[in-house]
């Protein structure tokens, strides 16, 4: 009975936003995954072709300070005369690098740690999972603030620290899936037939956790993008990497910004971009969850 109870809690824990069901709602509106994917690929496109798409070098003083939008400067210029539109385009690169990089790092750690915990089990499982529980219980933002304040925030430092903080959620899911697979008869049979561990992992375990890896990647990337934007907004980002969050920070630093129309082309676009990028990843996550993991939802 306790098993039922914990499983029930686990089910909800695993899908706090119950995305499987959101799917029904969205499928009536139109392909969730498609919308998310198109949005996301759009951002990827912009990031790759930023040098082509942006009219100016974002660091160059291409105009007078605080110009209004014009044909020369689509979104005007900032307080030192840099083109806002070009900043926006190049900002995509930073958000994506941090999002994808931190997501990959977190998922890599999650696969190694969750896989080892689930496959090897025993005391290793206990230690790794308690470590994960501790990390989950820590407040993430203050932790990141502390670390970044101490070491100074470069893009790569941020990727690593975010990855180090984010692995437990996905590791937990992977661990329980590996445990489930490990108990399957066909896996025990594979051992019985004399296969080595590597074969079993590659042939039987990996296919089961691949969808989880993709799902973990997408959700972690979304959260990493949000965190980076937040940190940059607080002035804790890499001051050399002009991300969307940092743009908003600079904009808000201008006294009386909100009292003029300036926020419309300076503050709003990066905010909308951040929201859309995170949203696109969430939408892909919703679609992936319902499509790749039908078996997981039914318990």
């Amino acid at each position: 009975m306790l098993v039922v109870a914990t499983r029930y809690v686990e089910r909800v824990l695993r899908y706090p936003f119950g995305r499987a069901d959101v799917r029904h709602v969205f499928s009536s509106i139109g392909g969730t995954t498609a919308v998310g994917l198109v949005l996301f690929l759009g951002f990827v496109f912009v990031a790759i072709f930023a040098p082509v798409l942006a009219p100016y070098n974002p660091d160059a003083f291409s105009g007078k300070p605080l110009e209004h939008p014009s044909n020369a400067h689509l979104l005007g210029t900032n307080d030192v005369g840099q083109d806002i539109f070009s900043e926006l385009v190049f900002g995509t690169q930073i958000s994506l690098i941090i999002g994808v990089g931190a997501g990959l790092g977190a998922v890599f750690l999650a696969v190694v740690i969750g896989g080892a915990a689930g496959y090897i089990g025993g005391w290793l499982d206990f230690v790794l999972m308690r470590l994960g529980d501790m990390l989950l219980a820590l407040p993430r933002l203050p932790m990141l603030i502390l670390v970044n304040a101490l070491i100074g925030a470069g893009v790569w430092q941020m990727v690593i620290t975010i990855a180090l903080l984010f692995w437990p959620t996905t590791a937990r899911i992977i661990r329980s899936e590996v445990q489930r697979v490990r108990q399957r008869t066909y896996l025990q049979l594979a051992h019985h037939f004399g296969s080595n561990r590597l074969y079993v992992l590659r042939r039987h375990v990996l296919p089961h956790i691949t969808p989880l890896i993709v799902f973990g990647l997408v959700t972690s990337a979304g959260r990493a993008v949000a965190l980076e934007a937040g940190l940059a907004f607080l002035g804790l980002g890499d001051p050399a990497a002009k991300s969307w969050g940092l743009m908003m920070r600079y904009a808000l630093n201008l006294p009386g910004l909100l009292l003029t129309d300036r926020w419309l082309w300076w503050l709003l676009p990066p905010g909308v971009c951040i929201t859309l990028l995170i949203l696109s990843l969430t939408l892909v996550g919703i679609g992936l969850e319902s499509r790749l993991m039908p078996g997981l939802r039914r318990q």
Binding site: F17, V22, V25, F26, S28, I29, G222, A226, A229, G230, F233, M248, L252, W263, L267, G271, I274, T275, I278, L279, T282, L283, I286
Partner: peptide, 20 residues
């Protein structure tokens, strides 16, 4: 349906942006 849609969007927007 509409509540779910609004919630998904709201929970994805960074809080400093909605606040702004």
């Amino acid at each position: 349906t509409s509540l779910v849609t609004v919630s998904v969007i709201l929970s994805n927007a960074p809080v400093f942006f909605t606040g702004m």
